[in-house]
Design a protein around this nucleic acid. Structure first.
Lengths: 222, 222
DNA sequence: GCGCCACTTCGCCGAGGGGTGAAGCATCAG
DNA sequence: CTGATGCTTCACCCCTCGGCGAAGTGGCGC
């Protein structure tokens, strides 16, 4: 367990409105530049730079410079999971409000690099139910049936194995049951987007940190 | 999903050292008075009172006055789960430090009103493996075999059904797999403590907000 | 009744942190 | 080289927020 001081240090990073907006924007999984994040948060470039420095120093965000741009990503899926969980509690404790995305968010969205929402929880259940994955130390492994089935769907299992974790659980706040995270979940999400079973429901949405994350089921997505 | 503003408002409540200490202390599941929390956090009564007001207003803590004392508890297991998750990430991002409890915390501890740690994750697996619980909408239900088995252990199933949720998952940060939460988990924990299979490893530990939560396996706890 | 105790409210102070504008530094285009 | 762009650093302002001491409120015990 972390000491309370560690908890406070971490929560303090999330507890500033501008930083919270940035992190929510980054939860879509894309790498964004400091300028984009500044505009999304509605603050000036200097303020955004200071915030991002603190997020990087705190281990929540990583940077990789490219030319004169500095691209920022969430540091890990653990960070994404924690923000998701906290966001769920925030929705529960400060509820009576509707935001512009309605329930679409609860159906399918991105959580950093993998799928979340009702669809993702159902997928998790289906993978277990079909015997494609089975419990293992620290998460899940694919069974023989799962390997062939997933490969047939077009999931890149080799890439999935390259991740730090192959598959583990990630609590879904809207369903209150776990969905799948880890390398396998990343490849499944990538496969769904690549094959256009799912599409990003919105693009180019500065000023709305959440819109990037929403997903829509296409006709092909049987 | 919550708006970033909601997230920030909530995280801000957790992001203050004194409040974080109080919440960690409350994570043991006991109701504590304002004075106890003030001493635990190492601040004066006025400051503690102000902090607690904000926690109550924010929906994280509930009060029930008894005479001249005011007892404070966490508002729900959702709050406890979020703090646990965030604490896990805090431990991961600010790691290289040993705190006085060693690995005992990872083996067995209380998470609000139910068990957490390696033991609790193993218990979750055992319940599923024996077919005592099965997936259901919003969590888990007990099977017929589970009802008889749990009743034989001494678990009060009627009390468990009285809870808002009978059984659902709660992510265990140290194992990164879910353990059981909800009314059933509360009754199981209460049963383990009542029958002295587990005991609180420390009592009366002002100044150490974490010690209250650690549990120890007794010889009877086969 | 009185005093004691737990707790809250009030008034005040000091420090920290977020915001901006202006300047400094890289990178890229012409 | 020159100018534009993206980002950072610096200096400064302001305002919030946490802390305390003192005073006020209400329950409990003698």
């Amino acid at each position: 367990m972390s000491s309370p001081a560690d908890l406070a240090r971490l929560a303090d990073l999330l507890g500033e409105p501008a930083r919270a907006v940035m992190l929510q924007a980054l939860l879509a999984g894309e790498a964004l530049t400091a300028g984009e994040l500044a505009r999304t948060a509605g603050i000036g470039a200097p303020a955004a730079s200071a915030h991002l420095s603190r997020l990087v120093e705190g281990g929540l965000v990583v940077v990789h410079p490219q030319g004169r741009h500095r691209y920022h990503r969430l540091a890990s899926e653990e960070v994404a999971a924690a923000i998701e969980t906290l966001g769920g509690l925030a929705a529960a404790t400060a509820p009576p409000r509707r935001w512009p995305h309605g329930d679409a968010f609860r159906v399918a969205r991105l959580c950093y690099d993998h799928l979340a929402g009702r669809l993702a929880v159902a997928l998790h259940g289906a993978l277990v139910g079909r015997g494609w994955i089975q419990p293992a130390a620290g998460g899940w492994t694919a069974t023989a049936a799962g390997e062939t089935g997933l490969a047939a769907m077009g999931v890149d299992l080799a890439a999935a194995r390259g991740a730090r974790r192959f598959a583990c659980d990630c609590m879904d706040w809207s369903e209150r049951r776990p969905h799948l995270a880890g390398g396998l979940a990343r490849e499944i999400a990538s496969c769904c987007l690549r094959r256009h079973w799912l599409t990003r429901a919105a693009v180019a949405c500065e000023g709305d940190a959440l819109a990037r994350r929403r997903l829509a089921l296409t006709p092909e997505g049987g």
